[in-house]
Design a protein around this nucleic acid. Sequence first.
DNA 1: AATTTTTGTGTGTGCGCCCACACTTTTATT
DNA 2: AATAAAAGTGTGGGCGCACACACAAAAATT
Lengths: 366, 366
Amino acid sequence: MERIKKVTIQDVARYANVSVGTIDRVIHNRGRVSPEKRKKVEEAIKKLNFNPNMLARTLALGNQFTICALIPSAPYPGHYWTMPLNGLEMAAAQFKDYGIITEYFFYDLFDEKSFTKQAGKIAELEPNGVVLAPLFLEESKFFTEKLRKKGIPYIFIDADIPGGQSLSYIGPDVKQSAFIAGRLINSALPEKADILMVNMVKGFENASALKRMEEGFGNYFRENGLEENKTIHTLTIQSTQKEEVFRELTKFYIKNPSIKGAFVTNSKAFLISEFHRHHELDIRIVGYDLVPDNIEHMKNGGIDFIISQSPVQQGKRAIQILFDYFVWKKEPEKIQHVPLDIIIRENLGFYVNFNRHFQNGEKNNQ
Amino acid sequence: MERIKKVTIQDVARYANVSVGTIDRVIHNRGRVSPEKRKKVEEAIKKLNFNPNMLARTLALGNQFTICALIPSAPYPGHYWTMPLNGLEMAAAQFKDYGIITEYFFYDLFDEKSFTKQAGKIAELEPNGVVLAPLFLEESKFFTEKLRKKGIPYIFIDADIPGGQSLSYIGPDVKQSAFIAGRLINSALPEKADILMVNMVKGFENASALKRMEEGFGNYFRENGLEENKTIHTLTIQSTQKEEVFRELTKFYIKNPSIKGAFVTNSKAFLISEFHRHHELDIRIVGYDLVPDNIEHMKNGGIDFIISQSPVQQGKRAIQILFDYFVWKKEPEKIQHVPLDIIIRENLGFYVNFNRHFQNGEKNNQ
DNA sequence: AATTTTTGTGTGTGCGCCCACACTTTTATT
DNA sequence: AATAAAAGTGTGGGCGCACACACAAAAATT
């Protein structure tokens, strides 16, 4: 196919009978150009449909933007937090040449102090932007306040702090996701059934999120007039350790043998599933996140539904937003809920495969 | 944050005590460099962790890659085919500066001749790559053969031609999607029910796909021992016109009043839903694609499940693959099935919203 | 031993853009 | 009217890389 001549700043200059310097001044309107020439240039730009080559611009400017990401470390391969990280890395690779430098800081999912420590490091570095998963409420508030004082924009992923003044929040609408969970578990249960909502928490990580989930989950049954037939029990376990969880579950199920469905509010549904299998309990499960253990239990039939909150997408999107913000000066939407994918055994394979392809597809660009 | 000095070819040259020309020769290994220096350079590259700035490279090379996309035109805003187009445009904008030039050719969804005509135009242009939706089997085969002779790689989106020697296929696994449809419709039906699978076709567009769908749909019921309770009827209507469809449906439903669920194999589920509503039939529906009419009918409760095959993603991915192929010389995976999103009323909003955000987010880069 | 050929190496120019600087012309100030 | 200040405009160097070319050194050919 014949070459298409790109219109350059030179072309515009020639067409408008001025020098490239003038064109430049018009483009970035930094004054020092007479009204007539300005008009001429603007016309030329429109006429020739000129738009600047961002590669050249970036190269010439040579400015850098550093982004620090503060997320939980993944204790083992395939852990949930490998996925947002993956998304971050993919996007980072994509934008590397544009001067985006991404640095990762990991904190212990169960250790507020590690969060604070890593946050401190970031504050010291004074990057151009921050992406963080604000799982510890107080610590995150403290951190973001510091960032605000320094004028550093930050993006929440995975969990939101309402009123947290972030540049944007990218993650699930937890209330709605619980609503969906209600819909799903209900579809798998008989007319009359008791349902358990299991929370496993260590510390005060996400109390408000849990509250919103309870609300959303309950709403489904309320709004559909199912309250009489479906009773919801809530069990909060202060641990994610198998032994501890099993102990609590045993205690609970002995007292409540009528449970027919369980909604697990974190990515540990496989633990509950394992318990059910072990004790030959026929209880439907809806849980979160496509982590290996959950995938395994879904294949075996122990978990019926998984709600996946596009974890890879979250990471990618966060970087993309900061890139747009830095390079194109584009204000992002404040809240960007990600798609909530409903995974069942039958479409499980696609998500797993596609994500794999996708990852291979976009990294290595270095 | 302190500036991070990028390592350039100059740095490597200095470190290895050679000129940039030599570095260049090593990088592109075009010979003319003594073994000792080569080793030195390679060491320096590794030591300094040098990797070339693609912006600069692209700028220097100034090479262009033209991609032609051949897809159906969208008869109205919001039509299914606006979505892959959207994806194509988004990716095209993203890679524009890298010398990727994308041109679009639209054909009439119901007119093989228009396909052939547009295909002919593309063949004449001799682009570097082609993205096509091969909805007309024979015509597509003819076209791709021509492309192969010219050595032009092509990618199928939305529909595959098995053995079609494409660089890659990006789209749904139709058999599996029908399997999922079986799963979904079954979950909404009582123990015993008759089910209708409705095909609407004009001509011979996708006969093999329909066959695979029938297979996949049936498989769900076979594999789960549901054959005794669920009878599947198939109705193929040679039109997508409302009047014609309604006439055929009337005829069918009078003969088969026991139908409780319908699987619509294209994006026209809203038509069936409209018929049901009009005649006050209580029949569950599972259909394809998040087109406005379907969304409307899902909101009203006429459609129960929509399977969405990531149409935007398909377009994006196609361009991305060709970009990787041209610029990074990366061989893509031959088959890349997209996620099959299961949409119900409760998560509908997210898909609609997120896609909107997403689109705004990545275009405008020009 | 003189020559051609091959191999090895460095230099310079350009891709499209930004920006600092030099220079000229106009306007404001005394 | 002479001088200072401001406004208007063009030129040149550089971002990091690829590639053509000039040239030197070594190897192969007479």
